[in-house]
Design a protein around this nucleic acid. Structure first.
Lengths: 244, 244
DNA sequence: GTCTTCATGTCGGAT
DNA sequence: ATCCGACGTGAAGAC
């Protein structure tokens, strides 16, 4: 019962495709199908897609992907947790993938299946990613003077009525400082976020407390920069990874 | 030179895989590879992924996808416009996908290729999607009283210094109305967005002009609701699709 | 190219 | 289950 060789069939009949797919779903294999098909989706939104050649991937965790020859994103999909079902309907091979909460359904109707394959896939590894917001946070915690001289971090993920603040601390004068981190160049949305946290803390702390808000990112857009000024918020340029 | 049958090879040697993949890239076919591999990415961020079974998809538009047995999203990828290259390196089959602006590179090193397939794929169809924000906008433009009696739309995508307003109009009393649309339940971010537009218009219009801000969505979260009140903004519950 | 926002966003973490 | 924010977000449209 260890990993078996991939099962594949070129130009299978609908019945042959059905056999492969049903058994593969049963045995929790990763399935790929290729051929001309129509796709219908109904759920949070709804869509139809007329006949074209597509690659359909069914994963053992219940995800489904419909890929065309273009684009990084699938043209249709279903998230993990769905139930895949295959059948032959009116002589054509059909895959249906359903879930509840919310009720959603994906239907792929093949004009013909040009290829089907099934794989035993196991992947014990986690992705090791660097250059994230967490890396930016750690850079500042390791050397708070990167933010400004005299800055002292007091907490990460500090809760406020408006949400959790990335880094909360004190400046050299003892003022409260709210730091919002972004791993890349930011627009007006990040300024709004920082502003909400600063307002919330100003309401929560003593009325006489000064609360500074500092946005930390590699850079800001013009509009975001003007918005920062208007809100009396500050900006410090810093990347998740030291500049080369 | 019309559509040929899929080419596939089970357990190819690295050299056989190389032949198939090189020719398929040349001929702009859609390629899938399956087998145990390591993956490295370097670009906006960087990542490594140790050995595991994965499905790799190379598209003729230059996209690359690395899928594990779990998750809707690829564990690694490359966007359209990249250059795919295959080679045998130290006896192992390797795929490299590169792009510029920004410089990014994806490297997939197979321990062994368990299956390779190549497809001629053409897809002339566009997805027909409904239930989007555009549908919500059209509902209101068709029947402005859905927003409130006496509302008159004047413009969509009206420009302000803070960005484009979804719907700009006038209420029964002649006050300016800024409408922000969301196709689903919204959080604090949407309130911030609406607030920016309202502030910008208050600065732009005559000092004595009243500018109302209305958020239109199926529902709002508690925090967003409180934020709306604090900012003196309004909420109207409406879905992109009429309720059943 | 940059900027801005939408998305069936997805995903993870916390409550 | 909902809420909230990060993401190598991606994709589209405007400038």
């Amino acid at each position: 019962m260890s990993r078996e060789a991939p099962s594949t069939a070129v130009e299978p009949t609908p019945e042959q495709a059905l056999d492969v797919v049903r058994e593969s779903i049963e045995r929790e294999r990763l399935v790929t199908l290729f051929g001309p098909c129509r796709v219908e989706y109904e759920g949070r939104a709804s869509s139809t897609l007329d006949v074209g050649d597509r690659l359909v991937v069914l994963k053992p965790d219940g995800s489904a992907l419909v890929h065309t020859d273009e684009g990084q994103q699938p043209v249709n999909w279903q998230p993990p947790g769905c139930t895949h079902e295959a059948r032959v309907d009116d002589g054509t091979f059909v895959v249906e993938s359903q879930r509840t909460t919310p009720d959603e359904e994906l239907l792929v109707r093949f004009e013909s299946v040009r290829h089907v394959a099934a794989y035993d896939a196991t992947d014990p590894e986690d992705l090791a990613l660097s250059g994230t917001e967490a890396d930016l946070r750690d850079r500042i915690l390791d050397d708070p003077s990167l933010l400004e001289d005299g800055f002292e971090p007091r907490a990460t993920e500090r809760d406020t009525p408006a949400g959790a603040v990335d880094i909360f601390g004190e400046d050299a004068e003892g003022n409260a400082v709210v730091v919002e981190l972004k791993r890349r160049r930011v627009g007006p949305d990040a300024v709004g976020q920082l502003n909400r946290y600063v307002e919330a803390l100003r309401r929560d702390l003593h009325a006489d407390a000064t609360v500074r808000g500092i946005l930390v990112a590699p850079s800001v857009t013009d509009r975001a920069g003007r918005l920062l000024e208007r809100r009396d918020l500050e900006f410090v340029s810093l990347s998740p990874v030291p500049e080369t």
